[in-house]
Every structure is written in C-alpha cells, then in structure tokens.
Amino acid sequence: MINAIIFDFGDVFINLEKEAVTKAFKELGLKEWSQDLDELNSKFEIGKISEIQFIEGFQKHLPNASVDEIRKAWNAVLGDFPLYRLEFLQNLKGKYRLFLLSNTDAIHIEKFEHKVGISFARDFYQCFEKVYFSFEVGMRKPTEDIFKFVIQKQGLQPNKTLFIDDRKDNTDTAEKLGMVVWNLNPNEEDVVDLFDKKF
C-alpha cells in the first residue's frame, strides 16, 4: 500500500519545450551542444557554480551573446503548467505524503515562479511536505545519494513510496532502491492519470 509519492517536476507538472531551447541557442550562434556544456549544466544543477559562472561558461561558446540573451535562451525550455495538474495535486494532499524531487537550477526556478505568479507557485509548493531541488541539496538524479538522502530524511519506506519521473535512468535507480516507480511518458501519459495505474 503506497503511503508516499515523490514527484519529478519537469514534464510531470510543468511541460518542457526541449526543442525550443536548442533552437534559441542555435539562433544565438551555438553550433553544437558540447560535453563542456553538459558538465557546466551538471555543476550548476548541484549548486557547484554560481549563475554568473554558468552564463560565462556559455559565453565562451557564444562570445557575442549577452547575459540576458543566454538566460532567455536557457529558460526557453519552460513551457506551461496546466491548472488541472495543480488541482489534481491539491486533491492528493492529505491522502499521501507528497514530495517534489527535481534536477533543476536557480535560473529555471526563478523563471518558473515569475512565469506562473507567486500565488500559483506558493499553492504548488504547499502541496508538498518538502521540496528538494538539486541545486539546493548538492546532488542530482540518477545518483543513489539523492534518493537515499530523501528516504532517510523523511523516514520513508521504499516499498510504500511511489516515485514518478519521465526519465528512465531516474526511475531505474529508484526501483533498484526498492521504490515503486512510474516512468511517465509525457507524450502519451499525464500525471493526473495516476489512479488509472495499478500500484
């Protein structure tokens, strides 16, 4: 019997426009996404570098792009957050222990809060006992560390905890640690269909 649910954020609640961010950087003159940029993103997502160091890392590849242009291109990935998903979450509150566990960074969270408005963001955050953002805890999925950290911190029983994420590498780690998982396909499924699933 599930008594706790840990949700991912991107492509579970907020829709992600991955092609839009690629297009935006291409328009700024980025020829290809390099390993260097992957490493930069990883460091930023675990809070190892500051926002300005992250942007300066991009400027090495895009010397003519301004700070604002890079920030805007980076935020192009953030799509809409349908109200019905928030309402679904609000209806779950009190029935299960709810947590948010997201690989994200300070730029995206600031933009999300600005985009949806402070009252929407507050209503969203208030659905959870605790929100875990990778840039704040210094760890990111799919490493086991971040899952173990949340399980231990919250006293969760893995076999009674459902983890929902759109990335298979993340759900694979959670499953390995004994959690019940739903590897949600955002092109075909919606988090609000949770109870159509048999967990």
Score class of each variant (00 low, 15 high):
2 I>H: 01
3 N>S: 06
3 N>P: 00
5 I>C: 01
5 I>E: 01
6 I>W: 00
7 F>M: 00
9 F>N: 07
10 G>M: 05
12 V>H: 06
13 F>C: 05
14 I>F: 03
17 E>F: 00
17 E>S: 05
20 A>N: 07
21 V>S: 14
21 V>F: 06
24 A>Y: 04
26 K>C: 12
29 G>N: 11
29 G>H: 10
31 K>M: 07
32 E>F: 00
40 L>Y: 03
42 S>H: 06
44 F>H: 15
44 F>L: 15
44 F>S: 11
49 I>V: 15
50 S>L: 11
54 F>T: 04
55 I>V: 15
55 I>P: 02
55 I>M: 07
56 E>Y: 08
56 E>G: 05
56 E>N: 15
58 F>R: 08
59 Q>E: 12
59 Q>N: 11
60 K>F: 08
60 K>Q: 14
64 N>H: 11
65 A>Y: 00
67 V>C: 01
71 R>C: 11
72 K>D: 02
73 A>F: 01
75 N>F: 01
75 N>I: 07
76 A>K: 11
77 V>S: 01
77 V>G: 01
78 L>Q: 03
79 G>V: 11
81 F>T: 03
82 P>G: 05
83 L>P: 05
84 Y>R: 08
84 Y>K: 09
87 E>T: 05
88 F>Y: 13
88 F>S: 06
89 L>K: 00
91 N>F: 00
92 L>N: 04
92 L>H: 01
93 K>S: 12
94 G>Y: 05
95 K>M: 09
99 F>H: 02
99 F>Q: 00
100 L>G: 06
104 T>F: 02
104 T>M: 03
105 D>L: 03
106 A>N: 13
109 I>W: 02
110 E>M: 07
111 K>H: 13
111 K>F: 14
116 V>M: 12
118 I>Y: 01
118 I>K: 12
119 S>E: 15
119 S>A: 09
119 S>Q: 12
119 S>K: 08
120 F>T: 08
124 F>A: 09
125 Y>G: 08
126 Q>L: 15
127 C>P: 13
127 C>G: 12
128 F>M: 07
130 K>E: 15
130 K>P: 02
134 S>H: 12
137 V>D: 06
137 V>L: 09
139 M>F: 14
139 M>A: 11
140 R>L: 08
142 P>S: 01
144 E>T: 09
146 I>C: 14
146 I>L: 15
149 F>E: 08
152 Q>E: 13
154 Q>I: 07
155 G>E: 12
159 N>K: 06
160 K>T: 09
161 T>K: 00
166 D>R: 01
166 D>K: 01
167 R>C: 04
170 N>M: 12
170 N>D: 11
170 N>T: 13
171 T>P: 10
171 T>I: 10
172 D>W: 02
172 D>T: 13
173 T>A: 10
174 A>Y: 04
174 A>L: 09
176 K>G: 04
176 K>Y: 03
176 K>P: 03
177 L>Q: 06
177 L>K: 06
181 V>W: 02
182 W>G: 03
182 W>D: 03
183 N>R: 01
184 L>K: 04
185 N>T: 10
185 N>L: 08
185 N>P: 07
191 V>Y: 04
192 V>K: 03
194 L>R: 02
194 L>G: 04
195 F>W: 07
195 F>C: 03
198 K>N: 14
199 F>Y: 10
